[in-house]
């Protein structure tokens, strides 16, 4: 429950901007996959996306029409030849055709329905998620891990710097930022990676080794510190903590 609350808190702060980026097609790659996952479970996120979709569609008033090719309908007709049956969880249209029955639908189901047009093409599922905040409590970084989507391609950790409009992620004049995992098992802090300059850009993706992935899966929280060049010399984080936040296993958070 706590984790779900954290997701909603995150959404409250970030969803409008992300929804706009989603509706305008700005969200790409793993970040889009993450937001799609959030959409499946967050009514707030769904409402924000619906708002932008309804508003921005007016831009298409200037879109020239173009008659489709003949083969298109033939292909559609061929693909839809098989009779369709209702899947579990799907709602018959008679419910929303009958106003009285519409009210009987649970709110959670209703919110799920609007998402279907938003569902992206198959993509790797997010596994772990962390919002790292600075000392003032402002969200600075989100880190989202993705399990191995295709054999051999490895796991990924998407690092998204939640910067203000006109600022860039912190770029230490000397040294590096280092990402740490605090173990939920023994409370020790271990290094996941030393972030190089390119990984301090707006969005960056770390390809995780099995060992790094393990640290993420065992993480109670993630921490980013400022370290000397090359990272911490003793394998422990410095006291210059830039951001920290709890690491949430989405499978559990979204139950």
């Amino acid at each position: 429950m706590l984790n779900s609350i954290r997701l909603n808190q995150y959404c409250h702060k970030q969803c409008n901007a992300l929804a706009f980026e989603y509706a305008t097609g700005q969200l790409r790659g793993l970040k889009k996959t993450f937001f799609s996952l959030l959409l499946e479970h967050s009514a707030h996120a769904q409402q924000h996306v619906s708002f932008w979709q309804e508003q921005l569609i007016a831009l298409n008033a200037s879109t020239p029409e173009l008659a489709p090719q003949t083969r298109t309908w033939q292909a559609i007709a061929h693909s839809t030849q098989q009779a369709r049956t209702l899947r579990p969880g799907q709602v018959s249209p008679k419910y929303w055709l009958a106003p009285a029955a519409t009210g009987a639908l649970a709110a959670s189901i209703i919110m799920a329905l609007i998402l279907l047009p938003l569902t992206p093409a198959p993509a790797p599922k997010a596994d772990y998620f962390a919002v790292l905040s600075d000392a003032q409590g402002g969200a600075l970084v989100t880190a989202t891990s993705f399990g191995e989507s295709k054999p051999g391609q490895g796991n990924h950790l998407l690092i998204d710097w939640q910067t203000l409009a006109d600022t860039s992620p912190p770029q230490p004049a000397e040294g590096n930022l280092q990402l740490w995992a605090k173990s939920k098992r023994d409370q020790q802090v271990r290094s996941i990676a030393v972030l190089d300059r390119t990984q301090m850009q707006e969005d960056s993706t770390l390809v995780l080794s099995p060992a790094q992935w393990r640290l993420v899966t065992d993480a109670h929280s993630l921490i980013i510190t400022l370290e000397e060049a090359g990272g911490s010399a003793i394998g422990e984080p410095s006291e210059r903590i830039l951001a920290r936040g709890p690491c949430i296993r989405l499978k559990e958070a979204l139950l």
Partner: peptide, 25 residues
């Protein structure tokens, strides 16, 4: 664009049951 249209209408056919007019035009 015709490929996209094809995919989209197959999705519309499959998901039409899930459209809710109270939530989207």
């Amino acid at each position: 664009s015709n490929d996209v249209l094809q995919d989209a209408f197959v999705q519309i056919w499959n998901n039409a049951q899930q459209y809710n007019p109270s939530l989207a035009q």
